[in-house]
Amino acid sequence: MLEKMIFGRFIPGDSFIHRLDARAKLIFVFLFIAVVFIANNWITYAILVLFTFLIIRMSRIRLYFLVNGLKPVVILIIFTFLLHLFFTREGAIIFEWKFLRIYEEGLRQGIFISIRFFVLVILTSILTLTTTPISITDALETLLNPLKKWKLPVHELALMMSISLRFIPTLMDETDKIMKAQMARGSDMTTGSMKERMNAIVPLLIPLFVSAFKRAEDLATAMEVRGYKGGEGRTRYRKLEWATKDTVIIVILLILAIILVYFRS
């Protein structure tokens, strides 16, 4: 089941988007969230959609792959769409059936909100699909570095994130293994009442916690032995390099913002 999820997965490649500095991509996505809210009419939303497709093309990620991975989010989008459709009471009535009334403004709002959702989710996915988790972590650490002044443990947070990411596959394997071992002992986690299932999960969770703690302890020892004593005095192996293309992509986004402001009503 988890194998089918694409959110948070990295697809290796060598596209223009892949080669961008992770910081540029992060800044881009954050700015984009703001830019999306500039759009407020058909033209501006059309421009947004067009721009998104352009980015998809540039990332060379196959469309079906994106669409497939977005399935879980689709339900959320449909839900928001319906919410706006039925509860906005402005403009002319375009459809009426018994107590159900759909207004023109409701349809418009529903479509706009859905588009907004779509472009945001797609662009964030492209960020994670084209950037290794370690680069995202590094970028976050560098970007948040100024906050160290206010005692925010930026290095520690970044390290925690990178270690968590590194151990996800290990712990997934472990979960699978323990689940199978308990199933072989007759435990049944897939059928029965809610209470029975909750009880069946204990033999899975306890060994998993025990092993996670053991791993954490081992890892801490290994880190200590390898000379880890916090962020102080550490050098960095990963170097992020900001190139002209990174500046260019941010400038493009600003131009998009200006265009949107020009066309918004």
């Binding site: 323990i178 308990q182 092993s211």
Partner: peptide, 9 residues
């Protein structure tokens, strides 16, 4: 299983 002690709970 391999390392069966991991299933004790």
């Amino acid at each position: 299983f391999q390392f069966p002690e991991h299933q004790l709970f």
